[in-house]
């Protein structure tokens, strides 16, 4: 517990000392969103959501897409410890691997949730996204479930890959493939049949389904519980797999 708390605090402190990555990751989706709002509005209307403005797709879509990039940071922080030669010092504290993983993962889940929430708020202000009867608590559930799932997935990748370049490739390809298949780029209803068939294996699919429930169907907490259950349940299963795979004595290569 000591190591978990100390690591959590130091991760948050590092982010506070250098917040520019998050600032950029907050600005970029806001630049992209207006470019596709009108097109996505037409696309949603063609999918049967009359009166949709497009913000209901483009805001959650960009949050889900960029969420993979922001989540990737948790992996980079682990590799960075090796680059800074601080990893052995952490190991010398004899903290169990669960505490180390938690110390990296938990602060990033919190940051990821805050980052998503801020983008939804900005989307509401800039693009007129509104709940249309949907529940803000339901939205928070989906946001939290997605953050847990993405951070868990990135930590599993970190436990698996030896170099930061491998993680970077996974993060980039993962964002586009998972985001594309999951309905972050175009509405789920517009995806080809084969894509709709495989979409449920991606966290993006369950997040986008939950967001549709909230913003397009006026859904409440009960309506998004299945999606939240899949996201949170997947996060737990992935985390268990990560703990079993993670070897604290494995040397990771950061950028040379």
């Amino acid at each position: 517990m000591t190591a978990l708390l100390a690591l959590t605090k130091v991760q948050l402190r590092i982010i506070r000392n250098d917040p520019w990555f998050l600032v950029i990751m907050f600005g970029m989706p806001l630049v992209v969103m207006p470019l596709f709002t009108k097109t996505m509005g037409l696309s949603l209307q063609a999918s049967g959501f009359e009166g949709a403005t497009g913000a209901e797709q483009v805001v959650p879509g960009q949050v889900v897409l960029f969420g993979f990039f922001v989540g990737g940071s948790v992996g980079f922080t682990v590799y960075r410890e090796h680059g800074w030669r601080t990893w052995d010092r952490l190991r010398a504290s004899a903290a169990p691997s669960v505490a180390l993983l938690g110390g990296f993962g938990l602060p990033w889940i919190v940051i990821h949730v805050i980052w998503q929430s801020a983008l939804f708020a900005a989307g509401a202000l800039a693009l007129g996204l509104n709940f249309n009867g949907g529940s803000p608590i339901a939205l928070l559930l989906i946001i939290t479930g997605y953050s847990m799932c993405v951070i868990a997935l990135i930590l599993l990748a970190t436990a698996t890959f030896r170099t930061v370049n491998q993680l970077s490739a996974f993060q980039n390809v993962g964002a586009m493939v998972f985001g594309g298949l999951g309905g972050a780029l175009v509405p789920l209803e517009q995806l080809p049949g084969w894509a709709r068939a495989v979409a449920p294996i991606t966290p993006a699919y369950w997040a986008m389904r939950g967001h549709q429930d909230v913003f397009l169907r006026g859904g409440g907490v009960a309506d998004v519980l299945p999606e939240f259950g899949v996201l949170a349940g997947s996060a737990l299963v992935i985390s268990a797999l990560t703990v079993s795979r993670f070897r604290v004595d494995e040397t990771k290569e950061f950028f040379a």
């Binding site: 402190r13 590092i14 800074w84 030669r85 601080t86 990893w87 052995d88 010092r89 010398a92």
Partner: peptide, 17 residues
Amino acid sequence: ARLLGIAPQETGIYPIL
């Protein structure tokens, strides 16, 4: 671990802190 402190051969500190 509580009883010992180690400074490994290569400098390991957080440059950002």
